[in-house]
Design a protein around this nucleic acid. Structure first.
Length: 832
RNA sequence: GCGGAUGUGGCGGAAUUGGUAGACGCGCACGGUUCAGGUCCGUGUGGCCGUAAGGUCGUGGAGGUUCAAGUCCUCUCAUCCGCACCA
């Protein structure tokens, strides 16, 4: 008997699949009339650093299991792969090594592809794409221009986050705790002229359409909801005393307007210098403003910062009390939210209260709990609730908070002092970057025509070859004088190209559409085919993309829908986020030196064992701890599977998967039942629950059952066929997880092309036996078990249970109060 | 502070509908085979008491509902993650 040699059989089957183009699925020729069931199974595309890591292995193996399963249950399966290949690491590596980013990237893609092939994933390689390929980014640029034409891409000067290490601006989403998400450097605030996508126009739809995303993890939906941060409230306009100026504020609590006893501007508020010019407070205020702006973003985001501020000496009029209240400047007000100014209600807001207490400003209660008393000594009254009542609020006294919100807003509108308004935390998406290795923004800046789009016929705007990629605070492309100088497409005058490149998240916001038409150079994608395949049936990836990539992709899809390019508004119908793999309690990382390289495991145990282990480790959506010994479990399982199936294949003649023989009894019948119970469990675990760990455990149980019964059954005509039936079924069930060994064993059993053979069918009559283990309880405690025929009358079951010596002993001399019978399951006798 | 999750043997975890807690695997112990390979096969493996039969406790903690609770309810503790001076 041959030994199980994973290296040999894995290489063999990978070659077969490649030769036969086994996993290529063409688009339908007539999508409009094609009713075949289809499944678009997609995993988030990798950034091609040289090495595949365990996260990739888990991610792509999960997708592969689903793909195989769908394929074998009658679906057209689209399972593509590509590379998110623009970005800083390749550029930084090129700067370091003196090579070119394109070469570094090509080399890394070749390496990661080779490792992917070794994992044996059933990928449609005919659709492979890289986002840094001009044939791809041509269409990224085209989409940018679609945005531009619709006013959704625009350029403006704004306070933006600048990473001094990477020498580029960052999107809000890429700043974590005041630091650059990529390199960890503290970011700075700078005023720069930058390109934005108007994602805020879609804030409501991005929020409201989440109702359609039923099969998304709750935590991802919550994170997106928080990130968009919609609040309903009102804008209230305050008039400045002795001035023409009026300053609007946003508040979610217009009902507390009577309690607004002071007013605060963010240090960056544009009106400050005008307000304090020539006043006694000017020097002090401007000094405060300067000091705040010199502070780093990280400092400003620190927890438990003490409040600071300065009085401008100016006053505004509270529109409802007509009181003049002081205007302060403080950095606890954020310039980028609402209007950059607030009405402070220290009686009912913790932050305002802290500020008022620190600077001795008046605190007034204007809301009281329905049954509470007015007590101005109370520290803060913020938790009063929606049914609390207004006090000290003139004509609004006695109204409940919920009523007062709209009543005050209506009054303000009547008086022309405000209106209802909605504010969002979401900012527009800053997409320009001052780096080389990205898609050039296809815009030409003409002195007379302004910003002019590059004509479609001139796309792509190909990245020029340059000598020096090092970042210098402006795009390295600015140095490519010849490339940069072009005639204006509109007037023909000498003009200059935009030299910034696009954020790589732009590239990955639409790649799932391009797979449909990966090689079409006449259009971005074929709409009919896209509408046939999408939305993606199952999307799988890391939770770290919960807001960035997943929000941007939803935005892109909605823009393309509005423009008529796609027929759906949400790209990903079902989302699954996998847990992360830890080692020694920490995330695997080179700096910690706790990385386990998939390649090393494949060399030692084979790809099949690694594939099984990453899924067997635990529930796929939870974080898992890597254990070097853990891989032995699946590895031994495959070795035992190999021996068991080989022996059956050689000693019992028959088909690869013969029908379940009739006339089986005893151990043969037990194994037959176990086989069908296992088929049911594995099928449901993959199809309905995505619980791969329990599917694998069930397969192991079936193998244990086969081994246990083998010696008894192997010589028997019926028993032998039961063994063959069980072995063939097990090979089928294991195939999505360990496709190489499954294919090899299938062949030894006499079958061929398992990857396209039908999934085993459950015979429902073989799921239940004619007896059951009746659990006998006394007062809820298990005292005995007894094997009884199914469907026995209840009083008969009770009689038999009460006759059991142990049960009789426990009820002897006590009064039986109640007898609970759960048919075909248990009996509980309650005694006193 | 707001929001989301998670707590079960020495370890990873199972228990899908309130009905046998600990499936499956790792590790460990003992025995065997082969003999120096991270081998294979068998048996056992939650704690405590007991030679055993058996008993008893047991799913972070405290209450509760129920004939019956890892599962439902109330309170509470711990850990992890996301957002956070968002008015």
């Amino acid at each position: 008997m041959e030994r199980y040699d994973p290296q040999a059989i894995e290489a063999r089957w990978q070659a077969v699949w490649a030769d036969e183009r086994a996993f290529e699925t063409p688009n339908p020729t007539d999508p409009a009339n094609d009713e075949r069931p289809r499944a678009y199974v997609l995993e988030m595309l990798p950034y091609p650093s040289g090495d595949l890591h365990m996260g990739h292995v888990t991610n792509y193996t999960m997708g592969d299991v689903v793909s195989h399963f769908r394929r074998r249950t009658g679906f057209q399966v689209l399972h593509p792969m590509g590379y998110d290949s623009f970005g800083l690491p390749a550029e930084n590596a090129a700067i370091k090594s003196g090579g070119k980013p394109a070469e570094v990237t090509a080399h890394n893609i070749a390496r990661i592809r080779e490792q992917m092939l070794r994992m044996g994933w059933s990928i449609d390689w005919s659709r492979e794409l890289s986002t840094s390929d001009p044939a791809y980014y041509r269409w990224t640029q085209w989409i940018f221009l679609q945005m531009f034409e619709r006013g959704l891409a625009y350029k403006r000067t704004a306070a933006v986050k600048w990473c001094p290490q990477d020498q580029t601006v960052l999107a809000n989403e890429q700043v974590v705790d005041g630091c650059c998400e990529r390199c960890g450097a503290e970011v700075e605030a700078r005023d720069l002229d930058q390109w934005f996508f108007r994602i805020t126009d879609y804030a409501d739809r991005l929020l409201d359409d989440m109702d359609q995303l039923e099969n998304w993890p709750e935590r991802v939906l919550t994170m997106q909801r928080n990130w968009i941060g919609r609040s309903h409230g009102a804008e209230v306009v305050f008039r400045v005393v002795d001035s023409e100026a009026e300053i609007p504020v946003f508040t979610t609590r217009p009902d507390t307007l009577f309690g607004a006893t002071f007013f605060v501007l963010a240090p960056e508020h544009p009106l400050i210098s005008e307000l304090v010019q020539g006043t006694a407070a000017e020097a002090e205020v401007m000094d405060y403003v300067r000091r705040r702006s010199a502070e780093s973003v990280a400092d400003r985001m620190r927890d438990d910062r003490p409040k600071t501020g300065v009085d401008t000496g100016r006053r505004v009029v509270n529109p409802v009390t007509l009181e003049e209240i002081p205007v302060w400047v403080s950095d606890y007000v954020l310039v980028e939210y609402g209007t950059g100014a607030i009405m402070a209600v220290p009686g009912h807001d913790d932050r305002d209260h802290a500020f008022a207490t620190l600077f001795g400003l008046p605190i007034r209660q204007v809301v009281a709990a329905a049954d509470g008393e007015v007590d101005v000594q109370v520290e803060a009254y913020t938790s009063a609730g929606e049914d609390a009542l207004l006090v000290n609020s003139g004509q609004f006294d006695g109204l409940a908070v919920s009523e007062a919100k709209s009543a005050v807003a209506a009054w303000l509108a009547e008086e022309g002092r405000g209106e209802t308004k909605t504010a969002y935390r979401l900012r527009d998406w800053l997409v320009s970057r001052q780096r080389y290795w990205g898609a050039p923004i296809p815009i030409i800046d003409c002195p007379s025509c302004g910003l002019v789009p590059v004509p479609d016929a001139d796309l792509p705007v190909v990245l020029p070859e340059i000598e020096d990629y090092a970042p210098k605070g402006r795009s390295p492309l600015a140095a490519a004088e010849e490339w940069r100088s072009v005639p204006c497409p509109t007037c023909g005058a000498a003009a200059l190209r935009e030299t910034d490149t696009m954020d790589t998240f732009v590239d990955s916001s639409w790649y799932y559409l391009r797979y449909i038409s990966a090689h079409d150079d006449t259009q971005v994608f074929d709409k009919a085919a896209v509408d046939w395949w999408l939305p993606v049936g199952q999307y799988i990836g890391g939770v770290e993309h919960a807001i960035l990539h997943l929000l941007y992709s939803r935005f892109f899809t909605k823009v393309l829908f509005d423009a008529g390019f796609v027929g759906f508004e949400e790209p990903f119908a079902n989302l699954f986020t996998q847990g992360m793999i830890y080692k020694d309690g920490a995330k695997m990382s080179k700096s910690k030196g706790n990385v386990v390289a998939p390649d090393a495991i494949v060399n030692r145990y084979g790809a099949d064992a690694l594939r099984m282990y990453v899924l067997f480790m635990g529930p796929p959506d939870q974080d898992k701890e890597w254990s070097d010994n853990g891989v032995l479990g699946p590895s031994r399982f495959l070795d035992r599977l190999w021996k068991a199936v080989q022996r059956i294949a050689s000693e019992v003649p028959g088909e690869a998967l013969p029908a379940a023989p009739s006339g089986a009894e005893g151990a043969a019948l037990d194994l037959l039942r176990l086989t069908h119970q296992t088929t049911k469990r594995v099928t449901e675990d993959i199809d309905r629950r995505l619980q791969f760990n329990t599917a694998i455990a069930a397969s192991m149980e079936l193998l244990n059952g086969i081994e246990k019964a083998r010696d008894e059954l192997i010589g028997d005509p019926v028993g032998g066929q039961v063994l063959r039936h069980a072995a063939g079924t097990l090979v089928c069930l294991v195939q999505p997880f360990a496709p190489h060994i499954a294919e090899e064993l299938w062949e030894q059993l006499g079958g061929s092309r398992l990857w396209e053979s039908p999934w085993p069918v459950v015979d429902p009559t073989l799921l239940v036996s004619d007896t059951f283990t009746c659990v006998a309880q006394v007062n809820g405690k298990v005292r005995e078990r007894i094997e009884l025929p199914r469907g026995l009358p209840q009083d008969e079951v009770v009689r038999l249970v009460r006759e059991l010596p142990k049960i009789a002993e426990h009820i002897a001399g006590r009064e039986v109060v109640k007898e609970i019978v759960i048919p075909d399951k248990l009996v509980n006798i309650v005694v006193k």
